[in-house]
Amino acid sequence: MLELDQVTKSFGTQTVLYPTSLVVTEGTTTVLIGPSGCGKSTLLRMMIGLILPDAGTIQFQGETFTAANQLALRHRIGYVIQDGGLFPHLSAFDNVALLARHLGREPSWVKSRVAELAELVRLPQSALSRFPAQLSGGQRQRVGIMRAFVLDPPLILLDEPMGALDPLVRYDLQNDLREIFRTLKKSVVLVTHDMGEAGFFGDEVILLGSGRIMQRGTLNDLLKHPADEFVTRFIQAQRWVQSDDVNTSKGRHRGHSGEHSTLQHDKHVTSKPN
């Protein structure tokens, strides 16, 4: 689906990404995780051609980004940012419909597609006529997801999509999103700094630190066999419980209403070994 081969990036004298390679397999979810400034957002922005690598190649469905094909490639990739990145001058409906209309899709097609997507992300129809400023944070994010999905792209990129949401809203949206990704068999790359979210979504979790991949694998691999001191420290910093106690990939067990309840909740699930 998506292949990055030895890509690097510097801004001025500062190297934000050392030679890095990764492959996103069709139908799987890859999570990029790491502290601020580790290069995870740079990597994601490269995947849609917002940033061009200084060296190395990026291939999406066998094509590399060029000035000529970048618009067409972007139409086959959905991109969701924190808080939805909605255009404030357009209603929710118009935000979602913008690209399809611009590409000349029939109004009737657009209308039914938006309604379909609203149902998919469980957005009330009444919210469609509202402007972003009139929507709740969770609704804005759902509209942002609808916008990314409008042309039904095979690849979805998400840059800290839940970052601005309060825990309960985030909980619901995480559930809905994973369900959507699975049913629609989307290839997904998700950037987060939350281990719990990484484990919940990720078939593969890639931990980045200061421009390099520090470790990759399932969350359980990372927790059980941290590659080095950095990985250990990063996991500790999440105030996560011991690796033995964790159920990572299956099911949904964690509440997110605060750090303490998270810990307590997680202790409950220790009885269900992986």
């Binding site: 972007r74 990739i77 940012i81 990145g85 255009f87 357009l90 913008l98 690209l99 611009h102 916008r147």
Partner: peptide, 23 residues
């Protein structure tokens, strides 16, 4: 982030100007 949002949709520079930036 709004500029990026218009870019990642795959809108051409003219379309970005007309549909997003000028409004």
């Amino acid at each position: 982030h709004l500029r990026d949002s218009a870019m990642v949709l795959g809108l051409s520079p003219m379309a970005r100007l007309r549909l997003v930036e000028l409004p």
